[in-house]
């Protein structure tokens, strides 16, 4: 299979600050490729270099076979891009925005009619096509922006944190659209800082401080996590998490929903020791269960193994 994206040693510095530091990876055609990391990890900078908006300081890369340093204009014709912030024209109607981007991508005639209908249907805006885009709820705007980005049916779509600030239901709907596109063969390159969204991706690249710290399928990343995790049910979660910080055999204890996730060095020993330890602080334990690590656990663990801190 040929690669939709391949990147070697890609680096971008802004003065002394290295935003993206020798990143190497590739993306298969038809894949949903996720870029996960906290704000400032270098996700947006990488996407800007891949979409021809920013020149790399060093390293090389190809998107759909074109060199990102010299052929950015060809790349722009063959990609869809949706930026972090809403970037359609708020003072144009839904129809006018579609017509504008169709013009820029040179989609016309019968194909334009078909694509327009497709976008309106896909985004559920057929009944609102004459409304000003600025008046629409954010979730609808995002769907329209996605539609405008794929008017010309690009083989690859870049989404830079497409769902930031959108409510969970709209986020779920948005991902249904992404799956629809992926099913039709579009390669999806998406960045996010929502862990739950990362689970939807075929493969995930974890980024922190400009560096790629892991790259694999979500399930593989989780199973590769070395330390076991115990979920602790207790009356006072925050107090328990506090009490366990720095205790022997405990690597990390943090709230996870209403329970406490405790990363330990030895599951059996900890299961035995924990109730007594907490009882001495006056905290009752209702149950201890070993759990599958979440991507968040994996991320934190990887960063810790590297001896660095998570920036967020």
């Amino acid at each position: 299979m040929s690669k939709a994206v391949d990147v070697t040693g890609l680096t971008r510095a802004f003065g002394d600050f290295v935003a993206v530091d020798h990143v190497t990876f590739d993306v298969e055609e038809g894949e949903i490729f996720g870029f996960l990391g906290p704000n400032g990890a270098g996700k947006t900078t990488t996407i800007k270099m891949l979409t021809g908006l920013l020149a790399p300081s060093s390293g090389e890369g190809h998107v759909v076979g074109h060199d990102i340093r010299t052929e950015s204009e060809f790349i722009k014709q063959r990609i869809g891009y949706m930026s972090q912030l809403f970037s359609l024209y708020g003072d144009l109607t839904v129809d006018e925005n579609i017509a504008f981007f169709a013009g820029l991508y040179e989609v016309s005639g019968e194909r334009l009619e078909q694509r327009r209908e497709w976008v309106l249907q896909m985004s559920g805006l057929t009944a609102h096509r004459k409304r000003m885009t600025g008046e629409l709820p954010l979730g609808w705007k995002q769907r329209l922006a996605l539609g405008c980005a794929v008017l010309h049916e690009p083989p690859i779509l870049f989404l830079d944190e497409p769902t930031s600030g959108v409510d969970p239901v709209s986020r779920r709907n948005f991902w249904d659209l992404i799956y629809t596109l992926a099913d039709r063969g579009t390669t999806i390159f998406v960045s996010t800082h929502y862990m739950e969204e990362a689970e939807y991706c075929h493969r995930l690249a974890l980024m922190n401080r400009g560096r790629l710290i892991a790259l694999d399928r979500p399930a593989t990343l989780r199973s590769a996590m070395a330390e076991p995790i115990l979920e602790l049910a207790t009356d006072d979660g925050p107090a328990a998490a506090q009490a366990l910080q720095g205790a022997p055999g405990i690597i990390e204890a943090a709230m996870f929903g209403r329970a406490v996730h405790v990363v330990v060095d030895d599951a059996a020993r900890a299961t035995h020791a924990l109730p007594a330890l907490l009882k001495s602080r006056g905290l009752a334990v209702h149950g201890i269960t070993p759990v599958r690590p979440s991507l968040e656990d994996v991320f934190v663990s990887l960063v810790r193994r590297e001896g660095g801190a998570v920036i967020s």
Partner: peptide
Amino acid sequence: GTMEQLAATP
């Protein structure tokens, strides 16, 4: 913020 979108088109 519309410049970014414009710049990403051909």
